[in-house]
């Protein structure tokens, strides 16, 4: 039917208007203020490069950058590896209904109070907390787990493991079962089948899972702050400190822009690698 444009635009415009006003414009504005001047705790429109040179010229910024990049990369790799056996079981070893329920119960925590869960870990992992109490029974410890890289990693797992398992399970379920059975039939060992048949076939989904893990951990401030001890601070902690204490929004904006650039480059590189390899 010759559709009325008033009707069509009624449905098309709400998203455009809202995302423009409260997503695109704020981000563009943030990019703009990275060139503004701060004088007596007030921002003034200007075009100076001082905020950029101040941030990029400091050792602590680069320390934060590398620790953030390193932790997010490590998390993407480690969490993908931890998730894989679980996803493999869910995709191939359980019935359809078990899989559906498992995915159901993995989606629930993803939308549930990450902050409170991180706090619970803080209590559980404390010097005199539950884990050390259990280990003490068998004569081990106590171990210092809070305020370490290990603590941060537990937090990252809490944040991303359910999502990564769900994404991996979907992509593994999409692999053609005939292919796997053919490999078995040809005498391929289970491990070789995984490495040579399943992983390459599910590559795109596995990479997308790792990319989401990277994005979430790269930007997270709760785990590094409450479980990782924030020393050295990560980029998101740097943004919070710079924004909240010093009113130095322009410098925080510099950090934010560098984070966005890093995320986009990583995601773009990973996804294009995923698709290029597959079509070969």
């Amino acid at each position: 039917m010759a559709t009325s444009s008033r009707y069509a635009f009624t449905w098309r415009l709400p998203m455009l208007i809202w995302q423009a006003a409260f997503f695109v414009v704020p981000l563009v504005f943030m990019a703009a203020i990275s060139f503004w001047l701060v004088k007596n705790y007030r921002m003034e429109p200007d075009f100076i490069l001082k905020n950029w040179s101040k941030m990029l010229g400091r050792g602590f910024f680069w320390d934060a950058y590398w620790i953030t990049l390193w932790r997010a990369s490590l998390a993407a790799l480690v969490i993908s590896l931890i998730a894989f056996p679980a996803s493999y079981s869910l995709a191939y070893k359980v019935s359809e209904s078990v899989r559906r329920w498992a995915v159901f119960f993995l989606i629930v925590p993803f939308f549930t109070s990450y902050l409170v869960r991180a706090y619970a870990w803080q209590v559980i992992l404390a010097e005199n907390g539950v884990v050390n109490a259990v280990l003490g029974q068998v004569g081990l410890g106590p171990f210092t787990m809070l305020n370490t890289g290990f603590g941060a990693m537990i937090g990252y797992l809490t944040l991303t493991l359910p999502l990564v398992i769900v994404l991996q399970t979907f992509s593994l379920s999409g692999v053609d079962r005939n292919q796997i059975e053919a490999a078995w039939n040809l005498g391929c060992s289970p491990l070789r089948t995984i490495v040579q048949v399943i992983v390459p076939s599910a590559r795109v989904g596995l990479i997308i899972g790792a990319v989401f893990c990277f994005i979430l951990t790269f930007g997270d401030f709760v785990s590094p702050f409450y479980l990782g001890g924030s020393k050295p601070p990560t980029l998101s902690i740097l943004i919070i400190d710079t924004t909240k204490s010093g009113q130095q929004w322009p410098r925080a904006a510099v950090v934010a822009l560098i984070m966005i650039a890093t995320l986009f480059c990583t995601a773009f590189a990973a996804v294009s690698a995923a698709y290029r390899k597959r079509t070969r």
Partner: peptide
Amino acid sequence: TIPLVIMGLAMLAWL
């Protein structure tokens, strides 16, 4: 895909 901290900063500045 945009970290929440960044959204927070951008929204704070804009609002």
